[in-house]
C-alpha cells in the first residue's frame, strides 16, 4: 500500500495534538477540577509545549528515536499521573515501531496496542475504572476491525470509538487516581484522561493519512 506513515507525518500528528490540547487546556482542566486536582489541561499543555520545542530543534531519523524522545520529554515535564502514562505510551509505541520498514495499518495497530498495554501495566487500570483506558480499549478494537479497510478507515473508526468511550465515562464511578477519592460524586463527570486520549486519536486521524 502506498499509505506508509513517515516520521514527518508522526511529527505533524504530535504538533496537531499539542495544538488541540493547548486550545482545550481550559476545558481539560475544568473537567479535572470536577473530579481531580484541576491540573490535567495545564500539565498536558506544559508537557506538549516541551515536546514541540524538542521537535523544532531536533531531527529524527526513525520513529522509535522520535517517540523515545517524546516519551521521555513528557515523563519529565507533565508532572501529574499523565506524565508516566503518556510517557509510557509513547515509549512503548516507539519501541513497537523499531526496525519496521513500512508502517501501515497493521503495524500501527500493533504499536497502539503495545502503547496501551504499557498504560495498563503502569496505571493498573481496568475497563470502566473511569480512566483513559475507557477510551483506548474501544478505540483499539475499532482500529483492528477496520484495519483491513486501510489506515484512514481504521484511524477514523478508532477516533469515533474513543469518543464514544470518552462519553461513556460520564456515568462511571471512578476507581483509580484522585477521582476515586470522590466515590459516587465522580459519577456524572466526563473523565479528563479519556478526553485527551480522544484528542490524540482525532489528531492521528487528521494527520497520519
Amino acid at each position: 500500500m502506498a499509505e506508509a506513515v513517515t516520521v514527518d507525518a508522526f511529527v505533524r500528528w504530535l504538533k496537531h495534538f499539542a495544538e488541540t490540547v493547548h486550545d482545550s487546556a481550559g476545558h481539560l482542566t475544568q473537567l479535572d477540577s470536577a473530579i481531580g486536582d484541576a491540573d490535567h489541561g495545564t500539565n498536558m499543555d506544559r508537557g506538549l509545549k516541551a515536546v514541540v520545542g524538542v521537535l523544532d530543534t531536533n531531527g529524527f531519523d526513525s520513529p522509535d528515536a522520535l517517540f523515545k524522545k517524546v516519551g521521555m520529554t513528557l515523563v519529565s515535564t507533565v508532572g501529574g499521573a499523565s506524565g508516566p502514562l503518556y510517557g509510557t505510551f509513547f515509549l512503548r509505541f516507539g519501541s513497537a515501531l523499531q526496525g519496521v520498514e513500512s508502517i501501515g495499518s497493521k503495524e500501527l495497530g500493533k504499536a497502539f496496542r503495545a502503547g496501551v498495554d504499557g498504560i495498563v501495566a503502569r496505571g493498573k487500570a481496568e475497563l470502566e475504572d473511569k480512566t483513559m483506558y475507557d477510551a483506548w480499549a474501544p478505540a483499539l478494537e475499532a482500529f483492528d476491525q477496520a484495519a483491513a479497510d486501510g489506515l484512514a478507515a481504521a484511524l477514523s473508526a478508532a477516533a469515533s470509538a474513543a469518543a464514544e468511550g470518552r462519553d461513556a465515562t460520564t456515568d462511571l464511578l471512578a476507581r483509580k487516581g484522585r477521582a476515586s477519592y470522590l466515590g459516587e460524586r465522580s459519577v456524572g463527570h466526563q473523565d479528563p484522561g479519556a478526553t485527551s486520549t480522544t484528542m490524540l486519536l482525532e489528531s492521528a486521524a487528521a494527520t497520519l493519512v
Binding site: V75, G79, P84
Partner: peptide
C-alpha cells in the same frame, strides 16, 4: 518539576 511546579518526573 522545578522549585515551584508540583509534579513528579520518572527520569529524575
Amino acid at each position: 518539576l522545578d522549585g515551584e511546579t508540583f509534579g513528579t518526573d520518572a527520569a529524575a
